[in-house]
Simulated scan of single mutants.
Amino acid sequence: MRRRRMIYLPLIAIPLIFAAAGPLLARSAPAERLVPFGPSPWSPFGADRLGRDVLAAALTGGQSFLLVSLLTVLGAYLAGFAIGVAAAAAPRVWLDDLLMRPVDVLLCIPSLLIIMVAALRTEGSGLAIAGAIGLALVAPIARFVRMAASGVVHGPVMDALRMQGETRAYRYGRYAVRELARPLAADFGIRFTAAVYFLASANFLGLGFDTTAPDWAVSVAANKDALLIAPWSVALPAMLIVLLVVGTNLLADDLLSDPRTVAADHTRGGSTRD
């Protein structure tokens, strides 16, 4: 377990440091435009197609990318969580069906199609595209939350509390939070990865985003034609996205793992070494 954390924590930390401290560090970069795809006196990564230092662009392009991804997932999770919990706790089957059948229909629609339609109907509004990404995430989130919450709401502990005539809502809530915290945290990491993927895909396809922005995904799309002559203009922002996605997935796997299984594996490994 500790060895795994030594792998994924640095993977997540690197892009987060770029996003958090990047704009401050980039202030010392040259303000004047350099030769497109030429060398840079400030870093060994050279310049991009607009003559910006590649490292400076990567340092300033992470905040918008991560902020939009995070806010999109938070909004989608609020909606999906409300639908999933309401369906799991529904006292009648028809109410469960009323809540979940539209979700099933939404699951059948390709996510990129929803994003492309939103981009075309709003003339490339970034806010509309972010909303479309959130809409595409609501259905799988609601499905997962309903599945996770059903076993808690209708489980033996909740039944025992009801049979005892327990009227204090916080006791129900405390148990539900304790049981749902790990799977929902893991699922949130997975949905964040999906939001990063959809946002990067939309940026790569040029669906309404400013093509001169230093955003990581925009930089990959804008400089891809110069991959052979200025590889760092594509490789650096792409690497930051990959590190973020891989690290987040490893973190989600860690959160989702059963502590009893982890403890058993740790004990078995210790006895083997002995």
Rank of each mutant, 00 (worst) to 15 (best):
Q63K: 12
H154Q: 07
R273P: 06
L243F: 15
L107W: 02
H154K: 05
R27K: 05
A226D: 03
R146P: 03
Y197F: 15
R2A: 04
A139L: 04
S201E: 10
D215E: 14
V153I: 14
L251Q: 13
V73S: 04
S40R: 06
F144C: 01
L205M: 15
A119H: 06
L78H: 06
I115R: 00
G38N: 07
A90W: 02
I83H: 09
L251T: 02
R5I: 00
L59V: 06
A26M: 00
L99F: 06
L251P: 07
F192M: 11
A263I: 09
T211E: 15
D210F: 11
V138H: 08
P231F: 14
L227N: 10
V262D: 06
A264S: 08
A26G: 00
D159F: 05
L228N: 14
P156N: 02
L67S: 13
L184Q: 06
S219H: 04
V242C: 10
V35R: 10
M147V: 14
L59T: 08
L9Y: 13
R49Q: 12
D253Y: 01
P10K: 10
A226M: 02
G189V: 10
G134K: 05
R171N: 00
N223C: 11
I17D: 01
A139H: 03
A47L: 05
V105T: 03
D265H: 09
A176R: 09
S150R: 03
R101K: 10
N223Y: 01
L66M: 12
K224F: 15
P36N: 13
D265M: 15
F81W: 14
S233D: 05
S28D: 04
R49V: 15
A195M: 04
R146S: 01
S150V: 03
R273I: 13
P102W: 05
L66F: 06
F192C: 05
L250Q: 06
L74F: 07
A57G: 13
L161H: 02
L55S: 08
L9E: 08
P237I: 08
A132E: 01
L99Y: 03
E32C: 00
V245G: 05
M100D: 01
R174C: 12
P36V: 14
V103I: 12
L59K: 03
L256M: 09
M147A: 15
L113R: 10
A132K: 02
R5K: 12
D187H: 06
A148N: 11
T248P: 03
A252W: 00
R27C: 00
T60D: 13
A148T: 09
P41V: 11
T261E: 13
S219M: 13
L137I: 14
A79R: 04
A82S: 09
A238S: 14
L227V: 14
R52V: 14
M163T: 07
F209G: 08
V117W: 10
P23R: 05
G247K: 12
F65I: 01
A76P: 11
E123G: 07
M100S: 01
A252S: 12
R268Q: 14
A20M: 15
A29E: 01
P15T: 07
G84A: 07
R191F: 11
K224W: 15
A82E: 04
T248M: 15
A186R: 00
W232V: 07
V218H: 02
N223T: 14
A88C: 11
A148F: 02
L137S: 13
G155Y: 00
A252Q: 00
T122K: 04
V54E: 01
